[in-house]
Amino acid sequence: MLLIFSIFASSQVSDFQNINLQKADSIADFYHGESLTNLPLLSFKLTNDLTTPVEKFRSLHTWVCKNIENDYGFYLENKRHREFFQKDSIKLNDWNKSFQKRVFTKLLEDRQTICTGYAYLVMELANQAGIKCKIIDGYARTPSSNVKTLGIPNHSWNAVQLNEKWYLCDPTWSSGNIYPFGEVSKFVHQYNDGYFLCDPSFFIKNHFPLDTAWTLTGQFSVADFLNGPIVYNSAFRYGLYPTSPKSMQLKLTKNDSITFSFHTDEQIDANKIYFRLISGSHKITAVPEIITQDNGILILQHSFNKSGYSDLHIMIEDQVLITYTASVNRK
């Protein structure tokens, strides 16, 4: 099993850096709004003029992300019922079966769904194109889910086999974001390429599968998943992945300095990164010192000159990428 994991760990989009995916994206855009009533035909249209498996999968994945809406109200309804029935396996199973039918009906009729529908549609279209693809069920980590302790399984994504290797992607979180508009929350399409064939060592930051073989890396535990910093979708959009500190909870003494290390996919302008420390209604913005930025590694340093407890958000352009907590003692 360890040998399998060591092979899987290198599976990421950079394996295909010599293949131009623009044609695949263009085809997906050309068929925007195409009907879901005939999935074999849709899969054919999206892949017929493409040569390599990765191009074909890219076209299918991009089309799903840009044509299907995430129904947040539907997600909340499912979440409430699953939490209510979690101690009654019979009622929970009955709910899952009845809700699953509604998920697929809503997907086909309204082009709206939740993670299960996204993952199903990607899998079905890929399989129609002769590409092996699976639905992976597990835990997604957000500020309100799976922090310190595991809740109930709350997310689904995909694994796809390309050139005899398995890769990971999340079409739901690639498709856009949920934003508050007054008293309601609405979905806004904002394609996020960071989850497409993502490096497993980064994907695991906020995805943990029920079957741990699908971590595609053997060096990450449930404890690592629960206790690490919270990594938001925006971190994947910018290509900024924390490597240390590994624990979300920072315990410090006043005037201590701490270094934060990151892997960067893109050449991020480190000067745009800032820290926002929030303690109750009190907010402080701080600019970290850049120690190193070279060869995909970024190291920042910050000194904690005040005691107390705060949430430490690592930000770019008013977007939170990563969150730690800092408990600073006087001495």
Rank of each mutant, 00 (worst) to 15 (best):
L210W: 06
H61C: 01
K23Q: 06
Q17C: 02
T149R: 15
G151L: 13
K91T: 03
I204W: 04
R82Q: 11
V287E: 01
E77R: 13
H81I: 00
F260P: 02
A129Q: 08
S26R: 09
L2A: 12
F236I: 09
E69L: 14
K251D: 11
I19C: 04
P242I: 09
P245Y: 14
V222Y: 02
Y31S: 07
H155C: 01
A126L: 03
T325F: 10
L300I: 04
K251Q: 12
D71A: 06
Y195R: 05
L298A: 00
M315Y: 06
S281D: 11
F104V: 12
K283R: 09
D256G: 09
P171C: 03
S310M: 09
V188T: 12
A223D: 14
S247W: 07
I297C: 01
T292F: 04
I291A: 02
D269A: 02
V13G: 01
Q17M: 03
H32F: 12
D29L: 14
Q22V: 00
S175M: 05
F84W: 10
T292H: 06
Q293E: 04
D265S: 14
K165G: 06
Q219A: 14
F104N: 10
N255G: 04
Y238E: 12
Q219F: 15
N158Q: 08
P143F: 03
L46Y: 05
H155W: 04
I152P: 00
Q319C: 06
T149L: 12
S310C: 14
S310N: 10
P229I: 10
A24R: 05
T62P: 01
L250F: 08
D311R: 13
A286D: 05
A28I: 00
K165E: 07
K101F: 02
G117Y: 08
N38P: 01
T51F: 13
